[in-house]
């Protein structure tokens, strides 16, 4: 996309993967995914305002296997962006910059987001009755 040939910083390909990179990249990636997910928010609210037929149609799409996969993805994206966002706000206040703390909090965001996703979907599948 660069309009002019400028010097480039070392590409991420040369680095050993570590949790600091993973959380930074995932925060941006999940943010973009969640922005795309707002389309469903708009569609669902417009459908609810439009009437029962439209709402049932959206609900059926959400219950399909394809909709379920997307929703699980968005649930995890939201869980990660939310947890890691708390970490970012703490860092804005000056906390959590010691390397050991930074790494630990990165793992908390990553594993915690998976735990939250499982909890939410356990509720969903319990209410759906296993379907």
């Amino acid at each position: 996309m660069s309009a002019n040939a400028r010097p480039l910083s070392p590409h991420i390909g040369i680095y050993r993967w570590q949790i600091q990179m993973v959380t930074s990249i995932l925060h941006r990636a999940t943010g973009i995914a969640l922005a795309a997910g707002t389309i469903l928010l708009v569609v669902a609210l417009l459908a609810l305002a439009a009437g029962p037929e439209a709402w049932d149609c959206v609900a059926a799409c959400c219950r399909s296997w394809f909709g379920t996969i997307l929703l699980i993805g968005w649930t995890w994206s939201l869980a990660f962006h939310w947890l890691n966002g708390i970490r970012h706000l703490a860092q804005d206040l000056g906390y959590g910059f010691a390397p050991a703390t930074f790494v630990r909090n990165g793992w908390i965001s990553t594993i915690g987001s998976l735990v939250l996703t499982v909890l939410v979907w356990a509720c969903v599948f319990a209410q759906r009755g296993g379907a």
Binding site: L45, L48, G51, P52
Partner: peptide, 19 residues
């Protein structure tokens, strides 16, 4: 998230009333 989970066992009229 809590509100969306509450929508799960509601039909269109129930969801409308909740929102």
């Amino acid at each position: 998230v809590w509100t969306v989970l509450r929508l799960l066992h509601l039909d269109a009229a129930g969801a409308h009333a909740l929102v």
